[in-house]
Amino acid sequence: MTALGFLYPGHSGEDDYPRIEQLLGSDIRLDLVHTDIGEDAHRVDALLRMGAPERLAAGVEELRRSGAESVVWACTSGSFVRGWDGAHEQVRSLARAAGMPASSTSFAFAHAVAELRVRRVAVGATYPDDVARLFADFLRAAGAEVTGVCGAGIITAAEVGTWGGEQVLALAREADRPDAEAVLLPDTALHTAGHLPQLEKELGKPVLTANQVTVWEGLRLVDRRVNAPELGALFLREPLVQA
């Protein structure tokens, strides 16, 4: 049994994780610990507080007791908002506190883009435009070319968590660009685990979503590979890079 640990802020799209666990169809357990979200707001100051070291460290002991072998901070905006260097320090601090390999959803996106060997990506973010642009900056720091950024302007994760499949698909369509090799949907509050085959069929290219890449990153940290077609192109390829 491989046990993966995730620190998830608040309660919005966390039911993607048991769905993904089921779709993995193997001896993999996904253990989720909820962190204190503080103020639910896609606003830079609130996001910086949400990902503060003491908030992440508070959930680490429970993951250790569960037998987790790696831990991923399952929040995109609460990591990239710190910038490339700040997000690295956040992960280093989490690894020290947890005593195990650690990462975040922001780095999961960067590693997944490299895994698929794509360079040009389009972003469909639920966030306000200023926060969405910070994610694009993070991707550029990772070496990606961002061909377009579409922000939905939603302030709270709670509202994002109410979105259904049609809204997710509409965001992906709006974000897509003809020259983009993949479309990225960066919000772990967004339910996407049940929509990945449809998204990729409609767009005709890989679609990377926050909870999907977060689980893939947890597996990458422990050198596990699972073939899971229902989780999209990312789960159909052999690993190409190691961080």
Rank of each mutant, 00 (worst) to 15 (best):
A74S: 08
G165A: 12
H11E: 12
A87M: 04
V146Y: 09
V71C: 06
V113N: 06
D27Y: 09
T35N: 09
D27H: 04
A141R: 13
A125M: 04
W84H: 11
R96A: 13
L234M: 01
V118T: 08
T209H: 08
P197K: 04
D223A: 13
P206K: 08
V123W: 05
V113E: 06
W163K: 10
G86E: 03
A57S: 10
T209Q: 04
P128Q: 13
D15G: 14
E166Q: 12
E54G: 11
A46I: 07
V215I: 09
T188H: 04
V33N: 05
L185N: 05
D31N: 15
A233G: 13
H191Q: 09
T147L: 11
E217K: 07
E21Q: 09
V33H: 07
R133W: 15
G143Y: 15
E14H: 12
H88R: 13
D31R: 15
T209M: 10
A57L: 07
T76N: 10
T192Q: 09
G59P: 02
L219W: 04
E54A: 13
Q212E: 08
A110R: 03
T76M: 10
A110L: 05
H34A: 14
W84T: 12
D36M: 07
K205G: 08
E89V: 08
K205S: 02
V131K: 00
G148Q: 05
R19C: 11
V60G: 07
E61K: 12
S106C: 09
V168S: 07
A87K: 01
E166K: 11
A97K: 07
V121R: 02
S103Q: 07
A114W: 08
P186F: 05
A132V: 01
V123H: 00
L219E: 06
H111S: 15
H111R: 14
G164F: 06
F107R: 00
V91E: 08
G232K: 04
R120W: 02
A41M: 11
L24M: 11
F135G: 03
A136M: 10
P206H: 10
G51E: 00
A243V: 14
C150E: 15
L196D: 00
T192K: 02
A110M: 00
A152C: 11
S106A: 11
Y8M: 07
S103M: 01
V222N: 05
L219N: 06
Q212I: 05
L219I: 11
E159S: 06
A46L: 05
V146E: 00
L139K: 03
G124W: 07
A193M: 01
G143W: 13
G25W: 10
V81I: 06
R64I: 07
A142H: 03
A172S: 05
A189E: 10
